[in-house]
């Protein structure tokens, strides 16, 4: 099985000097589902943003062998789709359909092809009837699903989801997990939702103060209460 994501010594500090990532290294195989868990401020969201070059720090990241650097950015962003924690950050177009078309249009698809792709993706996430609506008029659960559709329409090989179940009611959470369970490609999830990790992921990595401190299967890592407590997760 090939390596989908290879990260070596990623360091990133915000302009105010806060060190968000302090030498994080890991490999993710193609098709693997990996959860990054950690207390607030552990660096999970920052890590996701380094995967497709939105944030650039020290160290190297490779996506399917392609280095995340300026000259490869188009290819990298075609491969890595990021879904932000707050769907209001992700959905910025006048209608849901425009938002789902945004990525395919930037990837060079014609308007008709992008629209067909967007309509199909919205149908896949069970929201074919909201295409013409403003994201502002959708429920939080619908916004989350449309946000996911915005990257699914790009056929990314690696999907990075930031807190995909946060703010969802139990039904919405269940639907989100079902939707993620049906996705192909590699899946990276930054979350506090251990139920989601147990149901969906093959592997879990604990981030603490910008470092990865534990790596293993959910059954092993999530049952180690001492380890979890040590890193503010219990």
């Amino acid at each position: 099985m090939t390596t989908a994501v290879s990260a070596e010594g990623i360091k990133y500090a915000y302009p105010d000097g806060t060190l968000a990532l302090d030498g994080v290294s890991f490999d993710i195989r193609e098709g693997e589902r990996v959860a990054f868990v950690g207390a607030n401020g552990a660096g999970k969201s920052t890590l996701l943003l380094t995967l497709n070059g939105v944030l650039k720090g020290e160290g190297t990241v490779r996506i399917h062998g392609v280095a995340v650097e300026a000259r490869n950015m188009k290819a990298v962003r075609r491969m890595v789709g990021i879904v932000f924690q707050n769907p209001d950050d992700q959905l910025f177009c006048p209608t849901a359909l425009d938002d789902v078309m945004f990525g395919p249009l930037n990837m060079g698809l014609s308007r008709n092809d992008a629209m067909a792709k967007a309509e199909k993706t919205l149908a896949d996430v069970g929201l074919s009837d909201v295409g013409g609506k403003s994201p502002f008029h959708l429920s939080h659960g619908q916004k989350k699903r449309v946000a996911m559709a915005t990257v699914l329409s790009m056929d990314c090989r690696v999907l990075a989801l930031d807190e995909p179940t946060s703010g969802l009611d139990p039904k919405g959470r269940k639907e989100a997990i079902k939707l993620m369970g049906g996705l192909s490609g590699s899946l990276i999830v930054a979350t506090h939702d251990f139920g989601l990790v147990r149901e969906l992921c093959d592997r879990v990595i604990i981030l603490s103060k910008g470092k990865n401190v534990a790596d293993g299967t959910p059954s092993v890592i999530l049952s180690d209460s001492v380890l979890l407590a040590e890193h503010g997760l219990e």
């Binding site: 943003l49 939105v54 932000f84 910025f92 945004f102 930037n106 990837m107």
Partner: peptide
């Protein structure tokens, strides 16, 4: 800033 990041991560140039 976050909206810009979201747009850039979906190939906005």
């Amino acid at each position: 800033e976050r909206v810009h990041q979201a747009a850039v991560s979906r190939g906005f140039d």
